[in-house]
Design a protein around this nucleic acid. Structure first.
Lengths: 266, 266
DNA sequence: GGGTTGGTTCCATTATTCGAAACTCAGTTT
DNA sequence: AAACTGAGTTTCGAATAATGGAACCAACCC
């Protein structure tokens, strides 16, 4: 693929505009988009028009601003339901979080980043949608490292150069070499830690969810704070978490062959 | 579905394919898509290719199936956050559902349908993402009627013909005339009921969320069952619900003018 | 080996998109 | 009031990208 980002064809360009609107994080004026856009006025205008009457963008004519449209939310709902991982995992992580009494995250790999697809907050009412769909760095989160450690080398080589290695805390791994070393450990041990590498005071233990064939399907993590928990304490939960991860993987495996879809052994 | 659906340009057609994949509700083979598609093989193939390497679709090469991609979830998250209604309303409906002890829904109008954007289930752990993003009919839900009743005539005329008037229950309004009459009532009264029109045993009362200028921003509903609640009981909650609806509208109004954006009185 | 199904690539034709420039319509300035 | 400004919208010939029939490939199955 050519030089990175470049979208293919008209559709790619239009979707790029969507991302641009998303990046603003608030309703945005046409002129604001134009200022950032690499397309000329008329072209951008047509894109925005098209996206708008496709429901991917919503135009507020009182304010003259564009925001992401409702069709996206509808599609994302469908995505969540058919992604198989999230809906299948949901009851499992429900039980898990109740059992361990801590916050549980479910994540997937989205290109070089971690995408949180579900979350259970132990005791309090859950603040959900605001979390599902959120992306985070892969190199300094428990779920990220748990997944990276089990990736085939080829994919890893594509992903690692894309990591920013921004130092969120003094514990953050600083470069690719350090991460490589850590991933070796994780692979051997079978689970990953986050030792306050992303946020001070926040630690977690994470396990990958692996298919029978060893493919990385996602990851589970249990989070604690340095105040209430310790790494050793979290590590003690590993067998319980592994049980959940394996249950999810197993159910996923059977779900993937809906009805009478014979298939040679994987 | 056949009639005026025609999308604009290439982008429209590609997005149509997305919807198609969404409609399957599960990962889908290329041939399955082709069977339903109005495009020739090569054309559809290109669309699917494009969408896939744009991250809007995800291809599972073990299975040879396409599913909706992660980019959608990421975009939807952004959509939710910048939609202004959902995140602003969230704390309000939290309190409301705690106060009234019943399930609360927050909805918006998505073309001719109702899109649920948030939900608070009174006592049990909430099943959220699985609900947010769901769409429902406008003509036979409380939130739907609450919003329709306050729409300008022009918009109503565009929307009403698109209602299916499927009779979910014996109480479902049967045609446009009946709905028109009902909407008149709702507008006068200020709130709408769902008298088991969508699901037997489920009743609700709903109020629109209106801007200072009278524009429909969304709707709130409180749901009950015929067993535990009555319409009269729900109606008693109207003042409390209205308070929430107005609080949301007010906060929304101020949020819409971020900083120092003077504006003549609306 | 010949047939069938599911998926992928080619490439000449054709329809779409591109984007400079012209235009509109508020406000503002002179 | 006339001229200016700047955001937003429309036009239209040239440039480009989409189109889809057909050919191709690879399994799998008689």
């Amino acid at each position: 693929m050519a030089s990175g980002r470049d979208g293919d064809g008209t559709v790619g360009k239009a979707l790029e505009v969507l991302d641009q609107v998303a990046a603003f994080g608030r309703p945005v004026r046409f002129s604001e988009l134009l200022a950032q856009s690499r397309y000329p006025k008329a072209t951008l205008y047509r894109f925005v028009q098209t996206l708008t009457n496709q429901g991917m963008l919503a135009f507020d004519d009182e304010r003259g601003t564009y925001a992401l449209g409702v069709r996206l939310v509808r599609l994302a709902h469908a995505a969540w339901r058919q992604s198989s991982l999230a809906p299948i995992a949901r009851p499992h992580i429900d039980v898990l979080s109740r059992d361990v009494g801590e916050t549980v995250h479910l994540a997937q790999l989205d290109n070089a980043q971690v995408l949180y697809v579900d979350k259970r907050n132990a005791r309090e009412p859950i603040e959900m949608y605001s979390q599902a769909g959120k992306v985070g760095p892969a190199y300094c989160t428990g779920v990220g490292k748990a997944m990276l450690a089990f990736l085939p080398e080829a994919q890893l080589q594509r992903i690692l150069p894309q990591q920013s290695f921004h130092r969120f805390t003094p514990q953050t791994l600083a470069d690719e070499a350090a991460l490589r070393a850590e991933l070796g450990q994780v692979a051997k041990r079978g689970h990953a830690f986050d030792r306050e590498e992303h946020e001070p005071g926040i630690i977690c233990v994470a396990l990958p969810i692996l298919s029978a064939g060893g493919r990385v399907l996602g990851a589970l993590s249990v989070t604690g704070t340095t105040g209430r928990s310790s790494l050793a304490g979290l590590e003690a939960l590993v067998p319980r978490i592994r049980q959940t991860a394996e249950a999810i993987a197993a159910e996923l495996e059977s779900w993937r062959f809906p009805e009478g879809m014979r298939q040679a052994g994987e």
